[in-house]
Design a binder for these strands. Structure first.
Length: 717
DNA sequence: AGCGCTCAGCTTTTT
DNA sequence: GCTGAGCGCT
């Protein structure tokens, strides 16, 4: 199979580029994964680069997996020696291998955001600060940001008193991580950078190993990631990066698309290749996308084009409120499916915030139409799943105090607040870990302990349980260990309390068990380590099943990298998209625009942009204006005679409605909701808002100018 | 230990 | 308007 076959000239140019730094600017749908995989295949097949010398980094496990699959088609099993993975997974492997040189515990556990918050809270506590006045989340954000920029506690800038405190929290937080033998997500990167900076021979080893480095979604790299890549490649300069600043939507997480500019400065000889041909969307969709994104100032102009026809016009709809918005989406999806235009699974509904999924879910549940919700409550964040993982983490690393405290009284074993407080004080006084302290309890020494005899007995029983599990971890495979944890803790009896929720929780535990069973074949401790890593580093999108035949509900952030024949973007209103939080910050506003751009460019054929007249936000129902992004889309791309027509004439002219058209008791007919009775009516601005009780539905609020209601039997003149 | 109350908070969330 | 944390009461 010819690697260059079927590639357009820009793609081919990227794939065949000579050695040295290369920047591929790849717009949405321009075949960037294709370029990346073909580049790898090209290096191996045509340039004789050994797969062993290749490193390809992605941001998500899903992207990594896709890349492996596609490379398998090109290279067969030759891909096995290639290192393909996320930044974090790659760093974990390096850190475990070089644990001694990196100065990290070999059996470190990985703390996720939740663990991090808890640990910061602990640091805040220890510094004698009030958690109400000094919110741990805010500190964590600042700390994480600093770490992404490779700023250690000692160099943490303290422009304000708050920052000064934050610096102290940061310092203590790092100490706590160390005593727990834990690394957080950011540490995985920074510790690897430190390793490479401090241990020249280790760096040299990896430089020799990774003679070609490829980076996907380069606009999403943070400083630490860029530094990592730079350290590896500065000498041989074989760095191939693919990115698109217009799709940078994670700057709030430390991603910095200015890395593109840094790259151009650090690698001035780099060739820059633009991929502008789009293989996904119709020209109308691309034009709409361009009209939105081109308003951003901080960008290099590029314009996507396609060989496809201009396609259908976009549909812009104004719904009365979020309920009607959901109703419209539901109705339209059903209509498209009924007409055989598309399958349910071809449709996606995207929104700015997760809270917006509710109205949609309500409507779909009521209509009995299935849907897939991506994200919401994530599997690995469920209480029962975290409990079991905490037990397994302890087997792996009993110094993980966070996990220990999580389950010391789960299921309940009568270790309450008081005992726990005594335990912590005792542990702090002795300056030892909780695990070590627990071990001392069972030793029959005359050592003074602060506990009530009963508590002491219970604690020591718990210590024995822990010891037994740790011991079992040396001998049993992961599945056996998993079952032993359940058995010895009585977890099933604890969680299955006879309620429906209890059953669901138990099902989640069993689902986790299925995941664990995949690691049962591995050597005892390797299985546990790999499993824990996997669990710490996967996300929900990774498990997104593309085959189920139901529409997908997801946030715009999660939509990145995906595509759908039919896309609905809902909530296109000022303060929703763009989000109200971004109003006083130009850069944040540009990011909102990019988010909108990402959403639009997910659509292959049909795009619906929906806004509401009024929306309930944080319990407050208020009138909303259409999103500024909507106003940037030229009318000629839009299907005429929609509600949008009306709103574009805002501000409305002189009042056209001065008297009520409808009065309580009027019988009316609505094209969608059928017959009903008017409950109330009031004049709002120049329009009339009525509440109507339709047959078999709860009363609805409607706007007379929009709802095409017909009066059936006028009661009074 | 477990409950119910109040109050503050409230985007997005690749790893 | 809903949720989660903290607190006080039983």
């Amino acid at each position: 199979m010819n690697i260059l076959e079927g590639l357009n000239s820009a793609q081919r140019q990227a794939v065949e580029a000579p050695e040295g730094p290369i920047l591929v600017v790849a717009g949405p749908g321009s075949g960037k994964t294709r370029v990346l995989t073909h580049r790898v295949a090209y290096l191996v097949r045509e340039r004789g680069v050994k797969p062993y010398h290749l490193l390809a980094v992605t941001f998500t496990n899903k992207a990594a997996r896709e890349m492996k699959e596609r490379l398998f088609q090109l290279l067969g099993s030759g891909l096995r020696e290639i290192t393909i993975g996320t930044f974090h997974a790659t760093c974990v492997r390096i850190l475990r291998r070089e644990s001694e040189r990196a100065g990290v515990e070999r059996s470190f556990v990985i703390y996720d955001e939740n663990d991090q918050t808890n640990l910061v809270a602990e640091a805040v506590d220890e510094l004698g600060l009030d958690k109400k006045a000094y919110r741990p989340r805010a500190f964590l954000a600042a700390i994480s940001h600093a770490k992404c920029e490779l700023i250690p506690p000692s160099a943490f800038p303290t422009p304000t008193y708050w920052h000064e405190i934050a610096g102290r929290v940061y310092h203590r937080y790092q100490e706590l991580l160390a005593t727990n033998k834990a690394l957080d997500f950011d540490d995985l990167l920074t510790k690897t950078v430190d390793l490479f900076r401090n241990e020249k021979d280790v760096l040299d080893k990896y430089r020799r190993r990774y003679q070609h480095v490829l980076v996907d979604e380069f606009q999403d790299t943070n400083m630490a990631q860029y530094e990592l890549v730079k350290l590896l490649t500065l000498e041989h300069r074989n760095l191939f990066v693919v990115g698109d600043e217009d799709q940078s939507i994670y700057t709030w997480r430390g991603a910095d698309f200015r890395n593109v500019h840094r790259f151009r400065k650090d690698f001035p000889e780099a060739s820059v290749i633009l991929l502008e041909q789009n293989y996904r969307s119709t020209q109308n969709i691309l034009d709409a996308a361009h009209s939105v994104i081109s308003k951003n100032e901080a960008r290099v102009e590029k314009r996507l084009w396609t060989e496809k026809e201009c396609g259908l016009p976009l549909t812009i709809i104004e719904a009365y409120d979020e309920e009607e918005e959901a109703q419209y989406v539901l109705g339209e999806i059903q209509r498209l499916e009924a007409r055989g235009v598309c399958d349910l699974g071809d449709c996606a509904v995207m929104y700015r915030t997760n809270a917006q999924s509710r109205a949609l879910e309500d409507a779909f549940v009521r209509a009995g139409v299935p849907y897939r919700l991506v994200g919401a409550t994530r599997f690995y964040e469920r209480r029962e799943v975290k409990d079991i993982i905490a037990y397994l983490r302890l087997v792996h690393n009993p110094y993980d105090a966070l996990s220990l405290l999580r389950i010391i009284n789960v299921p309940r074993r009568a270790i309450g607040k008081k005992t726990l407080k005594q335990l912590m004080e005792w542990v702090n006084r002795l300056g030892i870990s909780i695990y070590t302290a627990l071990g001392r309890l069972s030793v029959q020494e005359a050592e003074e302990t602060p506990f009530h005899p009963r508590s002491k007995r219970i604690l020591s029983e718990f210590a024995n349980l822990l010891e037994e599990l740790i011991d079992a971890g040396q001998r049993l495979d992961l599945l056996e260990l998993f079952d032993l944890v359940l058995e010895r803790t009585g977890y099933a009896e604890y969680i299955r309390d006879g309620t429906e929720q209890g059953e669901e929780r138990w099902n989640n535990v069993m689902e986790l068990r299925t995941v664990a069973s995949e690691y049962a074949d591995l050597a005892t401790q390797v299985g546990l380590t790999t499993f824990l890593e996997e669990v710490a580093l996967v996300s929900d999108v990774d498990n997104y099943d593309e085959r189920a035949n139901a529409p997908t509900f997801l946030t715009l952030h999660m939509a990145k990298g995906l595509e759908f024949p039919v896309v609905f973007i809902v909530g296109l209103e000022e303060r929703v998209l763009p989000h109200s939080r971004s109003f006083d910050d130009r850069e944040a506003m540009e990011e909102e625009r990019r988010l909108c751009y990402v959403g639009i460019t997910r659509a292959k054929e049909r795009l619906y942009l929906i806004h509401t007249f009024r929306r309930t936000l944080r319990g407050l129902s208020q009138v909303n204006t259409p999103s500024r992004f909507l106003l940037d889309i030229p009318q000629k791309l839009v299907r005429g005679s929609t509600g949008y027509e009306r709103t574009t004439r805002l501000p409305r002219g002189p009042a056209t409605v001065e008297v009520h058209q409808f009065n309580p008791g009027d019988k009316v007919r609505h094209p969608q909701f059928g017959e009903g009775v008017v409950v109330s009516s009031k004049l709002v601005g120049d329009d009339e808002e009525v509440v109507v009780a339709f047959v078999g539905m709860k009363p609805k609020r409607l706007l007379v100018s929009f709802a095409q209601m017909e009066k059936l039997l006028p009661t009074r003149g």
